[in-house]
Structure formats: structure tokens, C-alpha cells
Amino acid sequence: MSSQTNLSDGPAGRIEENVGAADLRHLLELATLVTAARDAMSDDIVTRMSSAVNEGLILLDRVTRNPGLMRLLQALERSECQSLLEALADALTATSRELVSDPTGSGAGGGLLRLLRDPGTRDTLRLVCVLGGHLSRNLEAATKVSVSPGGSGAPL
């Protein structure tokens, strides 16, 4: 039967029809790339890469199963948080440098007063107070939810 003849000849014929010279050249290039990458690898590279993958997997697993951290990430992604994050990062760098250049601090009470007269310190204190206020209200709300009527959980 003709259909049987086609079946036995078919696959080879189809490969030849469908794979052009350019495709074969690309495949050859890919094969060369794989061989080159294989030759360039060493046990050490494989170990380091696997170690990174391992740590990445663990981190991903921890973060994705931690509702608090996920919420924090969502909040930190918001555009209005970006300037605060950048300021925090810059402040950390500047603080580290300042602590290295003046490890003992300049004087006791007098030094502290000088710090408080700095408008930047006052702004930061205000920021910490505002943050503290929000944190306190949110914690209060969370506590109320956990002991709301009908809830079976014990108060925190």
C-alpha cells in the first residue's frame, strides 16, 4: 500500500525537506558552542554555580513562603518608597564612613547637643517618630484582628 511506503520513507524525507542548509549550519554552531562551554568548564566552576543555585533556591523558598517578607517586598516596590530607600542606602554609606573617620565621637554631652542642633538629625528623628506611630497603630490593628469576636486564637 502506498501509505505504508510513504511511512517507511517518510521521516527521512521530511527531515531533508524541512531542514535547510542554513538550519544545519545553525545547529553546527550550537553544537560548537556547547562543546566550547563544556571545555571551558571546571569542577570549581560547576561547584560555584551549583552553590549559587542552591542558595538562590533556598532564598526563593524562604521568601515566597513568608507572608511578612512578601508584604514588605510589595511595599518596598511602590514608587513612593524608592526615594526613602535610596536615602536610607546613601545614609548607611555616609554613616559607615563617618564612623570610620571619627570612631570615638567628638565629646560626650556637647557632641550630642551639636548633633541635635543639626537639621538633618532633627528630620531623621521626626521620620523615626512618624514610622513609630504608624508601626504602633498597625500593630494595634493586627492585635485587634487576632482577638476579634469569633476568632478562636488566643490573644498575642
Partner: peptide, 11 residues
């Protein structure tokens, strides 16, 4: 290399 990788992925 799979074995080398597993030495790390064990964790």
C-alpha cells in the same frame, strides 16, 4: 558535573 552539583544541591 551532575554529582559535583549535587554536592551543593544536597543542602
Amino acid at each position: 558535573w551532575f554529582k559535583m552539583s549535587y554536592n551543593q544541591l544536597y543542602w
